[in-house]
Amino acid sequence: MMRYIKLVNFEINRFSKIYLSLLLITLVSQFAGVIIVTKSLLNDARDIMKEERLSEAAYITNYGGIDFNHIANSLLFVGPIALSAVALIFYIFLIWYRDWFGKNTFIYRLLILPTSRLSIYLSKATSIFLMVLGLIAFQIIILPMENALFNSNVPEALLSEMSISTITIANPILSLIIPSTFTQFLISYGIGLMIMSILFTAIMFERSFRIKGIIMGLLYCGIAAVLFLAPVLMEIGNFYFYPNELFGMMLAIGIILTGLSVWLGAWLLKNRVTV
């Protein structure tokens, strides 16, 4: 157990430079977004008021107030979230392959540590999951600050103030990464974990059987996708479920698939992987 925690710590440290850069990029880009987009929104509003000779009150009735939605939909705000997501998805692969390739074959050391291969597998999965949660937590912390900055930058007469929960519900990306209900949480992060475990297992197939393994890995991903989506696919075939039945089934299949993937991945790492 101690070694597992040390491994998690070690894995996170290895990614820390890139990870901190992601946090910094998010911080700078989103705050810059708040300031720049607010300014251009205000300019636009003033131009319209000038052209159409509208008072602030009239502008609000015609065009609506300026709200945070405009910010949350801007590239400067969403871009770093997408960048972080892409980086972490990429890291799902890199966290394994970086140990094999390059002059320093760290995988030798990793696999001869006096710890179970399952711990090694889980430590890598845990690190990625913790880093995802960390990014989300960071977003949850800076979002109210960004909102406050926005509120203070927009004249009260033009401002349409939004609460944090309204902001997260209104924006499709924010509502995905910051779930508002427990069910939502299960869906977002459960599916995320499942996909990660399936990808890990595909990587283990490739590392065990090389070229044949790539095919096996792709097949495994395909089969997993079909299994998970089976209830939805059945609906296409005119076989309908109640929403909670559908949810229950997908939850059950998801848990089984995740468990199976972890078991299979760790088994491959223990018995079939070649260094």
Binding site: G102, K103, N104, T105, F106, Y108, R109, I112
Partner: peptide
């Protein structure tokens, strides 16, 4: 223990 002929620690 195993001592391979390549470095086994991170560069």
């Amino acid at each position: 223990t195993f001592i391979p002929d390549a470095p086994t620690m991170l560069p």
